[in-house]
Structure formats: C-alpha cells, structure tokens
Design a protein around this nucleic acid. Structure first.
Length: 896
RNA sequence: GGGCGCAUAGCUCAGUUGGCUAGAGCGUCUGGUUUACACCCAGAAGGUCCUAGGUUCGAGCCCUAGUGCGCCCACCA
C-alpha cells in the first residue's frame, strides 16, 4: 500500500472519482446487482433552470438528495435519482431578450421563429454549464435518464394533460382580470406576484365640482375607467346616495357613476368612498361582476393609456398620473395629498409593477368537480395531505408546520391562469379556425395539430409551472409512445413508471412549496389518480453570515464552485448539512466551510493511520469476540460503533441529516481518533488491527453519503475491490456479539474518567507537561479493571511514569488528591499546595451544591412517590457517590 | 389584518417522547514539534436556556400572555 499524502487534497481526486462512478454505470439502477424483489427508492431532482449557474440553494438540495440516494443505494434498494433541467419560460426568455438588447434588437424584430432559435441555443449552452456544476457536487443521479421540461417526451405529457383537462372541462378560456407585466408582456399567476411596501401618495379629490363628495385613490390615472363609487352600507354619510347614478365630467371625460354599497369598504380609510375601476383592480372587478357594472379599459398591455382618452391617451401610467394630478390641482378638485405606505405588486421575475387588466386567457378551474372523481382539484389536493387519497397514506410534510401553510394556500386557491404571452415554452395545444363572419371560431384541442386547412395555433404558451407540475411522472417516460390517455386518465406504460412511481420524497426549498410542490399534488392526483410522492422534505434558505439574503447587489454571495475549488466538495456539502434544522434558514460563512475541511482531513488521517498500522488483507476480518481477546477499549469502541450504525441509519431515514452528521463527527474525531487510535498505539494485537480495519470500513461507508469523494478516495487507496458507492451498508449485527456484557463498556468509561481527571489535575497544578510523576490509585471494587489498564493510564498524556494500584490504603499527604467515583488517585511529587487547596475547595463547593439538591429532592415525598422508580433509584445512587467523594475531599482539605 | 418561525456560551447552532451537574463547532485563554493529522494534541474559562405567569414530584422542552427579530399570506383603495 503506497503511503498517503499528509493531507487530503480534494482537487486531486474529485473529478477522477466522479468519472469512475459515472463510468461504472451504477447511477443507473438497471445496472445495480439486485434481486428482483428489491424495493425501489426514487427521487426526482427539482430541475435547475437552464438560465442560471449553480448557487448555494442548488448545493443544499443536491447534497441532501445525494445523501438519501447514496444511503438507499447502499442499503440495497433499486435506487433512482432522475436529473433534469427546467426551461423556465419567462426567466430564460427575459435573459435572451437582454442579450439581444445589447445588440440593439428586440424579439419582435427577429420574429418568433428566429427568436426561439436564439433561446434554444442559449438554453443549450447554459444547460451544459449547470449540468457540469451539478456533477461537481458529486450528485449520483442517473444521467441516462436526464429530462428537460421542454423535450419531446415531456411535451407529449404536457399536451396530453392539457387535453385531458380540457375534455373534463377543467381548462377553460375566459376574459378575466389578470396580473399583467407590461415588461414581460405577459400574464402572471397570483403567486408570481410579489409585494413590496413603499411610500405612495394618497390623493383625495372630487370627480367634478357637482359630485357630492370626495374619494381617495393612489392611482388617479385609472379613475378614467371608474363606473361606480362604493361605500360601506353602514356609513351614514353616504347612505342617502346608495343606488343613485351620477353623470360627471371628470377632466373632460363623461363618467357614469353608480353609488353602490359593499361591506368590504373600510369606513375609516380615506373618505370612506372608493372609486370603482372594474378593469384595473381585482376587487373592483369582482364588485362589477356582482353589481353588473360597466367595464371601461383604460390601460393597455404596454402600460399606456388607451385611445379615446384625449390628451391622456398614449401616456404611460406615470406620465398620465402626473398630468391628472396636475389638472386636479389646477381645477381645484384636489382636496388633499398625503403620504401613505402601501404594497405595490411587482413581477417576481423583473420587478416591474404589474397592471391588473382584463384579458382573454386560459384558466384551470380549481373548484369544478372532476368527472369520475366527484371532487374538485382543490378538494383532492387538500385530501391528499390531510387524509390520503386513492388508498395512499397522507403525504407527509417535513417539517410538519408547513402543512398549515399548504392547507391555507390550497383552500384559498383561485382559478389558475396558465397562459402566457411569451414565446419560449409549451405552446398551448389549441388550434382555431374561422367559421365565417359573426360566429365564434372553431376550436380544436389535441396532442397533434388537426388535419385540414386554415387552422392556426394559439400563439400563447403555458405557465412554466404547468409542465413542472407533471415532473414526478413525466420524467418516468422515455418514449412518447409510452404516453397514453385511457379511461380519462394519463397512463405511462414504462417499467420506470411501474417501478418508481410514486417517488419516495420530494426534497426542495420551502419557498417553492406553493409554486411547485402544491402544483405537483394538484396535477398528479387528478391526472394519475395517485400521489406524486410519499414525503415532502423542505430545507431552508442559505443566508450570509449575518442572516441576510445573498444577492449580487449586496455583494455577499458565496459561490459554491469557488468554495469547492478552495475546500473541496465534501467540505461544502457538510457545511450545508450539519448545523441546520429542517425548514430552517441557515447562515453560512467561509470559516464554517473551512472547519468542515478540517473534519474531512481528519477522516483522511484516521484512515492514513489505520492503513499504515494494520497492513492487513482486509478480506479476512473475522474479529475474535471471545472475552479474552478483547480489551475494555475494544469493547467500548465496538459498542459505540454499533450504536452509531443504528442511530445514523435511523437519522437519515427520518431526514435528520444534521444529527446523523453530528454523530459521525463525534465518533470519528472524539471516540475514534482521540481515544481509540491513541490507545491502539499502546495496546497492540492482531485482533486490534482487524478491529481497526473493520471500523474504518464501516465508518467510511457511513460517511460516504455525506462526503462521497474523500471516502471513495480512501476506499480506492485501500485497494478494495469495487466502488464504495455500491458497498453494502454496515450491519448492526456484526457488532452484536460485543454487547453481551455492557458493564465492560461502562468500565472503560471509568478508566477514561480517571485519565481525564489526572490530566485536569496536572494542568490545574501547573505541572509542566514534560515532568513525569508518580501516581498511586486506591481502586476499591475497580481493582481488576484498573490493573488491566495500567498501560493506558500511564500512556495517554497523563505524564505518569510510575503507577501503583492498590485496593485501598492510607491517606497520602503532600499529594494531589483526585476522586473519580469511588476511586481515589494520588499524584505524587508535583504538588503546588496553594493551587491544590483551591482546587479541592472548588470541588467541594460544587459537590455540596449537588448533594443539597439531591437530598432535598429525595426528601420530597411527592418525588419519591410519583417519579418513576428508575429515576428515584438513580438519584439515590448519585447521592451516595457524591456523598462519599465529599467526605473524602473534606478529609483531605484538613491537611491544608 | 391573519399565520408561521426564531430567541440557549463572544459567534453559529444541537438539545427527538418533560428526568440536565444544559452540549457541540468556531472563537478566546493556558500549555504542547506526542513519528496519522498544527487542517493537530491536552487543559480551561464562558450560560437568570428572551420576560412574566401556569401545569407537573420535576420545565430549555408543555400551556397562557407579553417583548424583540425574521418570514409567509391577504383585494387596504
């Protein structure tokens, strides 16, 4: 075995190892060596957008999913992780438009076809970048099944689902008020609108001098489209006007205003009277529908005032507002202008203020009962999480608190606008044909274009979330032929679908719960009559070290790729997994990553030490478990190991990644490196070498899902056959033998405590480290075990060269005196009386407090009666032991 | 306006079903070339577990109210 370098240099191994994994074919479950009955485990990767580069959000997601995947693969599951990318319609189109703009071009100049070619080229390049970055993270996903939300197979699924929903009457086209982004020139779904608080001017004005009262608004320019004034029915000021119609001349435009009553009007706000603009406010639109009001469109799709408004026509919203305000002031109609703060709605992609306006769009009806199911999409999606649907258990959400958010969102869901006026995306599979004048167009909805002349496809595309909503099953088809509609539902006739659907868990960031997770539940329950996944695991957002969101403008962005270069992928993965709780945001700093680099290096050195020490053929690892052949330390470490296997497995299976990692670190650094390896330098035997190798092998296996590269690198250096990636997960039962007698494990803890107490006492007494001292131990009942551990007590940084063990004996004066349980230890010849006196006094104080507490507890009849017996018993024993030490120390103190 | 989360050592956070002399990592301090590792080793200091009530034999953990910070949702014109 060649000797390993002193420290682990990730960059020398990572790319080569990833290639080995990939070449092995084991990312693909078809190549795993499994029984036919092996259970399957599957995850679909939330597809990164093809626009971007890898950020820390992706990194967390990839790290967590890879942990699960590697764990289940090693456990012998038929394990599949499907990677893919998202075409992210608006985001991608916007980006390409930006690039074009730099060349002085717009998409309209290019035309639809040429523009789309540009986008496709851009997406291709961008795709390759992100895929390479996903690989950099060590992701063990099956690239042979890579999917794209806009490829041929996915397109067939999208169109089939659209058709299904259309035929079931769940998709309809209608004129409704929508969120319109004048910059993107497209609609947005309700949850794609973001709100930002800002200062705004609230104007109080009168439409005309003869109108009886004033109204307040922040958007005077829309008032050109007012068709009513709403007041609260209880507002005595306006009661007499309700039902009346006023015709007013508002800055040269005649408005017919009906005074209506509506409970939602706040009497306190403004003047208590609200100008109703049905075309440009959702609430007003709803009032208009209820009260049958006229609708006057004022603003067009460019965010400009439409024709027919005289001097205002053609102005953009801001200009028009300024002009109207100025006119109101001049004509004396303006009564008040005040600063208020309100929420403006912004496009989540480009931050442009959105304009609510009426438009003919495609919608999914969320309240209509689904034929054959008898429940609406909304009801079905709530059921899926609350009680379970189609014979499945309820979908579990981790952490559970997000259930509430989910229900709230789902229960308040309005019809989902799915059409977008952009070019990049799934074109709506609807074709129209003119039927002559004055009649509606003929409509064809289908998977393939209709035969015959004169058909024109709808120019709009689908909301990108429509296709991502199908992701858990659309990715399980490889060929469009496998996708069929049967019995009003979608059928995917593939082995993958049969084997891997529903997926086991959907792992993603919590900020995407509504955008995506909810939509997958909506789509899958309806279209497949099944759940898309059994569990949802939500991770938090990665913030900078001060808890702020990372953003380019703030300059606080940590680039995962840069960190990988500097500290290695394994360290980056750990820094994102350990020390954070499910669904909680985490703060990340470079120091944190550096800390985990140290841990990775520690693991490397543990391996380096064991491998150079135990030059064993590691095929033959039969450990002798006979009592004679195992020392206390052996028993102890083997028992620790067994517990570790149990709890790490349990933690990963229950998504407690941080805790699993924490336990592995504790074991590796503390129990193994600082104790057992040190001990192995003094206690030697062939059996011990076997134990060391066995522990190393199992430890590497357990670390592997967390830090795949360093563990695989060590594995390869060991000359082991095969890849660690597909090695069998450690077995608790390999260690069961050792647990037959737990008392020896506790015995070792006693030795450990004695050693630590000696180190401490030396340090407190300022005994120079190089100075060797003599020690005498009165071991009492522990005589045998301490006798067996003489070498350890002398060797493990206690600086003792002469050690005498007796069952008991006389008090020794002028010695440092330590008690550990009922064991008394004297350190001779190095005493500093002042310091020693202080130390003993402190110890006594401490013990007295404890003894007092315990005594009053045990004197409390309530406690003794009501607390469980084990607890009472334990407290009694503790009291006895503390009491004994206390008397011993008090006795000792008399000397000083 | 509703909902959710967080508040524990200087910093970042663990603390699963109440039994704790409240833990870890980083940082700080005292020492140390101990042939696996200075990306290291040994030792130490450091905490009214946000506040006030309550339930309980027993509360960091459960309940109620409050304070501070953060987030989400909602049609405040």
């Amino acid at each position: 075995m060649p000797s390993l370098p002193k420290s682990y240099i990730p960059s020398q191994y990572e790319d080569g190892i990833y290639k080995k994994w990939e070449d092995s074919g084991y990312f693909n479950p078809d190549n795993l060596d499994l029984d036919d009955e092996a259970a399957s485990y599957s995850i679909v990767m939330p597809p990164p957008n093809v626009t971007g580069t890898l950020h820390l959000g992706h990194a967390v997601m990839l790290a967590l999913e890879d942990i699960l995947i590697r764990y289940y693969r090693m456990r012998g599951y038929r394990t599949l992780w499907i990677p893919g990318t998202d075409h992210a319609a608006i985001a991608t189109q916007t980006k390409v438009e930006k690039i074009l703009k730099e060349k002085g071009l717009t998409r309209h100049q290019l035309g639809r076809e040429r523009f789309l070619r540009e986008v496709v080229n851009f997406a291709k390049k961008s795709h390759d970048t992100i895929v390479n970055q996903v690989k950099k993270m060590g992701s063990s996903c099956d690239w042979s099944r890579e999917a794209y939300t806009l490829d041929e197979v996915r397109t067939k699924v999208v169109r089939s689902v659209f058709k299904l929903m259309y035929d079931d009457g769940l998709i309809y086209r209608g004129e409704r008020i929508v969120n319109w982004c004048p910059r993107c020139h497209s609609t947005l779904a309700d949850d794609e609108v973001e709100y930002k608080e800002q200062k705004a001017k609230l104007y109080t004005f009168r439409y005309s001098p003869d109108f009886p009262f004033t109204i307040a608004t922040t958007r005077p320019e829309t008032k050109l489209g007012d068709t009513a004034v709403a007041v609260n029915p209880k507002d005595y000021r306006y009661k007499k006007y309700i039902g009346k119609v006023f015709e007013v001349n508002f800055l040269g435009h005649i408005l017919k205003l009906k005074i209506i009553a509506d409970k939602s009007v706040d009497i306190e706000f403004g003047t208590g009277a609200l100008g109703v603009t049905p075309a440009h406010s959702l609430v007003d639109w709803q009032m208009a529908e209820e009260k049958n009001l006229d609708i006057i469109k004022v603003i067009d799709e460019d965010g400009k005032i439409r024709q027919g408004f005289g001097e205002f026509s053609g102005l953009n919203v801001k200009e028009a507002r300024a002009k109207i305000v100025e006119r109101l002031r001049k004509t004396g109609l303006m009564e008040k202008e005040e600063e208020i703060s309100n929420n403006i709605s912004l496009c989540y992609r480009c931050d442009t203020p959105i304009e609510p306006l009426p438009s003919k769009q495609w919608f999914i009806n969320v309240n209509k009962k689904i034929p054959g199911i008898g429940k609406s999409i909304k009801e079905l999606s709530v059921e899926a999480v609350r009680n379970g649907v189609f014979g499945r258990k309820p979908i579990k959400i981790y952490p559970e608190r997000f259930r509430k958010n989910y229900f709230h969102w789902m229960e308040n869901l309005r019809d989902w606008c799915i059409s977008r006026q952009i070019w990049y995306g799934h074109r709506i599979p609807v074709w129209y044909k003119d039927k002559g004048q004055n009649s509606d167009k003929e409509v064809y909805v289908g998977i393939e274009p209709p035969k015959g002349e004169g058909w024109k496809q709808d120019p709009d595309t689908l909301d990108t979330w429509f296709s991502s909503g199908l992701w858990t099953f659309s990715t399980l088809a490889q060929d469009p032929q496998q996708i069929k509609i049967k019995d009003r539902r979608l059928v995917i006739e593939s082995n993958d679908f049969y084997c891997f659907h529903p997926t086991n868990v959907l792992e993603t960031a919590y900020d995407i719960l509504f955008f995506w997770v909810a939509r997958m539940i909506i789509m899958t329950t309806y279209v497949m009559r099944d759940v898309p996944f059994y569990d949802v695991y939500l991770h938090g957002l990665v913030l900078d070290e001060h808890g702020k969101k990372m953003s380019k403008s703030k300059g606080n962005v940590i680039d995962p790729l840069e960190m990988i270069k500097k500290y290695g992928t394994d360290a980056v993965r750990l820094s994102l997994v350990i020390g954070s709780a499910p669904g909680n945001d985490m703060k990340l700093s470079e120091e944190k990553i550096a800390g985990f680099r140290n841990l990775v290096n520690k693991l490397w050195n543990v391996a380096r030490y064991i491998l150079q020490k135990s030059k064993l053929d590691n095929q033959n690892l039969k450990i002798q478990f006979k009592d004679q052949s195992l020392t206390l330390a052996d028993k102890w470490i083997l028992s620790q190991m067994r517990n570790l296997i149990r709890s790490v497995s349990d933690d990963i299976a229950n998504y407690r990644f941080s805790q699993a990692g924490e336990k592995l670190r504790e074991f590796t650094w503390n129990s193994l490196a600082d104790w057992y390896l040190e001990i192995s330098k003094f206690e030697q035997s062939e059996n011990k070498d076997k134990i060391l190798i066995k522990i190393l092998i199992d430890l590497l296996k357990m670390w592997h899902p967390f830090v795949p590269f360093v563990t695989e690198a060590i594995w390869q250096e060991m000359g082991t056959n095969g890849l660690l990636m597909v090695a069998k997960w450690p077995q608790e039962k390999d260690y069961n033998e050792v647990l037959k007698d737990e008392t020896q494990v506790r015995d070792f803890e006693k030795i450990k405590n004695i050693i630590m107490a000696i180190r401490n006492a030396r340090s407190e007494n300022k005994v120079e480290p190089s100075r060797k001292i003599q020690a005498i131990i009165y071991a009492g009942k522990n005589y045998e075990i301490i006798k067996k551990s003489i070498i350890l007590i002398k060797s493990l940084r206690t600086g003792i060269d002469n050690l005498e063990i007796k069952e008991n004996g006389k008090k020794i004066k002028k010695a440092i005196y330590i008690t550990v349980g009922d064991v008394e230890v004297y350190l001779l010849g190095a005493i500093d009386p002042e310091k020693e006196k202080m130390r003993i006094k402190r110890e006594i104080e401490n013990l007295e407090k404890l003894v007092d507490n315990l005594k009053s507890k045990l004197n409390n009849k309530q406690f003794v009666d009501k607390a469980p017996r084990e607890i009472v018993e334990r407290e009694k024993q503790r009291l006895a032991s503390f009491d004994l030490r206390l008397t011993q120390l008090k006795e000792k103190l008399k000397e000083y």
